[in-house]
Design a protein around this nucleic acid. Structure first.
Lengths: 123, 123, 123, 123
DNA sequence: GTGGTCTAGACCACT
DNA sequence: GTGGTCTAGACCACC
């Protein structure tokens, strides 16, 4: 796992997001062990406390759980994991749609520019 | 102008964004006068320093200019204003497309969920 | 505010508890400002980060809210504050009753020893 | 013996407590043999090291003793066992009374809510 | 001045 | 080796 850190956003949030993406794309699955706090800190060239913070918040969101002295693991609640992907997508889409509407685009125009953008990526 | 402030994002950024949206939707046009710092602060129930900061940044981006003793005005550079809308849209779209791809969706799925989301809004 | 720290329990939890007690006893009321992180750290002879952690958790429990650059305040949700005292009392009582029952005491005996204990305190 | 483990409290402490409760309720009596470390670990679905630690601490408190090759036994010091129950009860009561007072309840109120709680349990 | 984040380094308890 | 907590000290953005 590599992350291009955006200076403007707290690192621990970016770590959380990266892990959630790994889950959404099924690179991380139910029950999988995350790298230890220290390992992950090493990998990301970041202070262990920062990783600790990210793991802590993930646990609070019940995306992970920790076993004392054993490590941190992805939750076994498969339902939770499924809905996670859906939720993340929904949040992205609705906030995008809202914002773009605020700029005064109508439905057809929105579809249009999304398509354009996608085609550009292909090239 | 009313803003639902998101506590997690700097208020001055949210003010800037709102003003840019007003421009994009042509509610604010070239040469229009913005409310004075104090008025705006009053309207938004916000510290005048915060409005000041927003205006300052807008000027740095050459979206507004100030005339001593007269107030702050939208730039007369119509070209600038047109490209503003385009830029904002492009930024929204590309970042959205990137993020949603990171969740493992492919092009067709993306178009699909955007359409779904738009239809839901209509109802 | 002074706290006799119990070495065995995380300091930030003890700070949270102390603040909750201040609320329960109405020493802190809705809207009151808490000492700044640094002030409180000074008062309690504790690292600011530790106070920060306590304040953060209190905010997550919606017992406080923060205003950027202004400080940390007790929530204005009076209902929340009322229920807080009740909840804390309930939790104490039920866990106490459960534990003491586990030791094999019956209802009359429990009442008895509580009374004894209270009388002893009086002297 | 089954234990609902609270993740936040050291498991060995919870095991110790459970055993003490068995003693207090006379399910375990002077001279009784405890399950072997391995058996207990099997029963509780716990690491043997953890059980080992619990047994060790109980011995340090002179609540149990071990006989080489024979196993771990409840002490024969009946006096010790009797006082154990009393001590545990006292500790529970005094800490409960202190805490509830800190919430601003007076003696009558305390008796009142304990009674309420007990009646609720009966139903 | 205010809270928020981060690093560096340390100690502890649990497995 | 694992996570959890704490200190010390620093920098930043916001009001």
């Amino acid at each position: 796992m590599k992350i291009e850190f955006d200076e403007k956003i707290p690192i621990y949030l970016q770590i959380m997001k990266a892990i959630k993406q790994e889950i959404a794309t099924a690179n991380l699955k139910a029950g999988d062990k995350l790298p230890s706090v220290r390992e992950m800190a090493e990998i990301l060239k970041v202070n262990p406390n920062t990783v600790q913070r990210a793991y802590q918040e993930l646990e609070r969101e019940q995306i992970t759980y920790t076993q004392r002295g054993m490590g941190t693991f992805i939750t076994n609640d498969v339902q939770k994991l499924k809905s996670l992907k859906k939720e993340m997508a929904m949040e992205l889409v609705t906030s995008f749609v809202n914002e773009i509407k605020n700029l005064g685009f109508n439905m057809d125009e929105i579809i249009e520019i999304v398509k354009e953008s996608l085609e550009r990526e292909v090239k």
